[in-house]
C-alpha cells in the first residue's frame, strides 16, 4: 500500500505537486500527464529519492522521510534511460552488483542472477558487455538488476520511452507477468490498457483517477 497524504513538492520557485492525496493498493497503477505535470516527482517520492516539502508519503506502512533506506529495499525503481542505471560492464556482473552488500555466498549470487536472467530471456547475454545490448535488452537488464533484489513494489519512470514498438511490446509482456505491485509513469497509453487504475496529473494536481478507459479518455480531452 502506497499513501500520499496532502503532498506538496516545491522545487525552487515552482510548485511541482500541490496537495496530492492518493491511496494506491492496486497491483497495476499507471500515472499519466503532460510534461512537467509532476509525474516523475510522484514516482520518485515513492522510494524516497524525492521528499515532500509538506505532507507525507507512506509505503508499506513506513514514512519515506524517516525510513528512506529501508523503503528502497522494498521498492525497486526503473529509470527511463537504462544506460544511466547500468553500473558494471557485463550483464551478469551488473545484476550481481545489486546483491553485493547482501552477504550472500558466491554460489547463491550466481544462482539468483542466473534465475532472473533466465526468467527475462537474457541468459545467453550473461557475459556480454552491457553497452552492446539493444535498447530493449538494456531496459530488461535494468529491470533484472531490480528484480534480483526481490522488491515488493516496482516503480518505473517512463520505461518504454526510448524503446521501439517491438521492444516496447516485449517489455509490456514482461511487466504483465510480474507478481509485484507496479506503478508506471508513462506517455505510452497502450501500455496501460490492462492496468487496474490510472491517475492523471495536470499542473501538479490529480485531475482524474479511474479505470484505464475513463482516465485515458479524460487525458485525451485534456491534451486536445
Amino acid at each position: 500500500m502506497i499513501e500520499f497524504s496532502d503532498v506538496h513538492v516545491r522545487l525552487g520557485l515552482r510548485d511541482v505537486l500541490c496537495g496530492v492525496t492518493l491511496s494506491l493498493a492496486e497491483r497495476r497503477v499507471g500515472v499519466i500527464g503532460a510534461n512537467g505535470s509532476g509525474k516523475s516527482t510522484l514516482a520518485r517520492l515513492i522510494n524516497g529519492l524525492a521528499l515532500p516539502t509538506s505532507g507525507s508519503v507512506t509505503v508499506l506502512g513506513r514514512d519515506t522521510r524517516r525510513h528512506g533506506a529501508r523503503i528502497r529495499r522494498d521498492v525497486g525503481f526503473v529509470f527511463t534511460d537504462p544506460d544511466a542505471q547500468i553500473v558494471m560492464p557485463t550483464v551478469a556482473e551488473d545484476v550481481a552488483f545489486s546483491l553485493r552488500r547482501k552477504g550472500l555466498r558466491p554460489e547463491e549470487v550466481e544462482r539468483r542472477v542466473g534465475a532472473v536472467l533466465a526468467e527475462n530471456g537474457l541468459s545467453e547475454h550473461a557475459d556480454h558487455p552491457a553497452h552492446q545490448l539493444s535498447g530493449g535488452q538494456k531496459q530488461l537488464l535494468a529491470l533484472c538488476s531490480v528484480l534480483v533484489l526481490e522488491p515488493r513494489v516496482l516503480v518505473m519512470d517512463e520505461p518504454t520511452t526510448l524503446l521501439d514498438l517491438r521492444h516496447s511490446r516485449q517489455f509490456a509482456g514482461v511487466l504483465r507477468g510480474l507478481p509485484h505491485q507496479v506503478v508506471v509513469v508513462t506517455h505510452d497509453l497502450t501500455l496501460l490498457e490492462d492496468f487496474d487504475r490510472v491517475v492523471v496529473l495536470d499542473g501538479g494536481r490529480v485531475v482524474a483517477d479511474d479505470e484505464p478507459g475513463a482516465a485515458i479518455g479524460h487525458y485525451r480531452k485534456l491534451m486536445a
Binding site: 528502497r72 525497486g76 534511460d81 531490480v146
Partner: peptide, 17 residues
C-alpha cells in the same frame, strides 16, 4: 545529467544507504 541519474540509480540499488 547522466551522473545525477547514475547517482540516483545507485541509491535505489542500496549504495549509500
Amino acid at each position: 545529467r547522466h551522473a545525477d541519474t547514475l547517482g540516483e540509480a545507485l541509491r535505489t540499488r542500496g549504495v549509500d544507504d
